[in-house]
């Protein structure tokens, strides 16, 4: 793809513009504008961090399932085998793979979120 500008820069420019006009909006629209800016920030992170996260998820799922495949196929199979009870929390490597997938996804969707188990902030 072309690089002047890159896709994520286009997205970022719109996000910054929304932030700039936010103070001029009525409370409801100011709130929705903040949500819209957050949505664009998520898109930006998905563009930059998504491919590596997907590759890691594919590798993790392939490891658990014992064969290669694309993301959608492996994800469907993983769901089906958990649903059937064939895979469970006792399955070696399953929770480890799911943990990496969850951490990578939250880093894209909501990097400020502090998941269960996060230690207290240092004062």
């Amino acid at each position: 793809m072309i690089t002047h500008p890159r896709t994520e820069e286009l997205v970022e420019s719109v996000r910054l513009w929304i932030d700039q006009i936010r103070p001029t909006l009525d409370p409801r629209n100011a709130f929705l504008a903040r949500v819209a800016a957050n949505a664009l920030a998520t898109v930006g992170r998905e563009i930059t961090a998504g491919p590596a996260a997907e590759a890691a998820a594919v590798a993790g799922m392939a490891g658990v399932l014992g064969h290669e495949g694309d993301y959608a196929t492996l994800n469907s199979e993983l769901c089906a085998r958990i649903r059937s009870g064939e895979l469970s929390v006792e399955t070696p490597g399953l929770l480890a793979a799911l943990t990496i997938m969850a951490r990578d996804q939250i880093a894209i969707d909501q990097p400020s979120y502090k998941p269960e188990g996060t230690a207290a902030p240092t004062p």
């Binding site: 949500v35 957050n38 949505a39 998520t42 929390v89 929770l95 799911l98 943990t99 997938m101 969850a102 951490r103 996804q105 939250i106 894209i108 969707d109 909501q110 979120y113 998941p115 269960e116 188990g117």
Partner: peptide, 18 residues
């Protein structure tokens, strides 16, 4: 955007499952 909050519950659930 609320749809993208599913992953926060997943990040919590993996810890609780562990």
């Amino acid at each position: 955007m609320i749809g993208r909050r599913v992953s926060e519950t997943e990040a919590d659930l993996v810890v609780l499952l562990e």
